[in-house]
Amino acid sequence: MVGALPWFFASLFLAGVRASVLTLQSPRLSVIGADATPLRNEPLSLAVKVPAPVELGPADKLKLTFQIVDADGKGVQPHQTFLRFYDEVTGEEGVQPVKVTPGGKAKFELNMARPFSSLPPSGKDPLQVSLYIGSFKHDPVQYNLFDLIVPASQAPAQHPDETFFHVRPEIFHTFRPEQKVPPKFVSAVFTGFIAAPWVVLLGLLGNVGPQVPHLFSPSIIPFVATLGAFEALLVWYWVDLRIGQVLLYGAILSVPAAITGKRALAAVSERRLGKSSK
């Protein structure tokens, strides 16, 4: 058993060497126009790339036929056969499997009117077309076949969220123009107008001549004083105080105001009723 192992490995090695070569027999490339006229029909060379790139119009067909054979010239169906389309500039690539019959014959067709979805997005640069063959029994092979020029694909549709990934234009706020105070002259004129009702008031009061005989009586004057203090407090509020302070001071001031008010108005009432009862 131990002595058999080197034989096994040796035979495996020999088999590997013998079976490692896979080649293509009679590979052909043809381009057929939209109206079924053959534009190009030539054999492919595996050693060197086709010098002139293959150009396809928007409705042209590319046909590729070959047979995969081993070193004995027998047709082989490999496990994997792929055509790779590679754009060297953009790095985009597409891989398309090729169907191979058990006899090793393969036929590939690319119709530009209905290109398969794995064809990479194309620009103005040619796609490099290469053939990959993988087999369990043979060494893998890669052939650089030719360059392919296809019509440029449409630009991809813009994603609706695309704008969120770029710098947005800067936002400029527009404000209403600053409001201005009117000219000094207009202000002065209307200050005069505002003062005019005071003149009217004083004139009317002078005309009417109200009498306040008891204003300075000890029962009245404290109430008037607290009312005046309230107004002074409010002016102070306008000038300096905060609302909490003015509410506090107002609450404190309201106590004497209520007391003095009650006294003053009681005195007035007494005088009025006394007068009316006379």
Partner: peptide
């Protein structure tokens, strides 16, 4: 009358403003 003159004053003031 005093109250009335005050009312007239207030009215005129408001109108001017």
């Amino acid at each position: 009358k005093t109250i009335d003159s005050f009312l007239v004053f207030l009215m005129l003031s408001g109108i001017v403003q």
